[in-house]
Amino acid sequence: MANNEQTHSHFPWSHVIGFALSIILTLFALWVGFESGLSNTMIIVVVVALALFQAAIQLLMFMHISESEDSKYQVGTILYSLFIAVAVVAGSIWVMSFGMDHMHMPM
């Protein structure tokens, strides 16, 4: 156990890079939203993609999802719940989009 320190580099590079990327992605999403002049649909697509990218950074660089012997089960669980999340969110929006022509719809 004593010489464990050699196996981990002294400076936590992956954390620092992950943190810097998170801040850059957050500010970039803000810029896309307010300054880019893209259409509303494009803004939604781009900022959601940026959020997914940032979530992946957290999972890989901070949470070490792929480090253990059980990593394929861990990744599988998260991918499956992501599928559930997309089905629930997109499905709800889709189902509730019918018969709403007379109401104010934000998009």
Partner: peptide, 10 residues
């Protein structure tokens, strides 16, 4: 991250 993006930013 998703609350920031979907709720506040949008």
């Amino acid at each position: 991250i998703f609350i920031f993006t979907a709720v506040y930013l949008l």
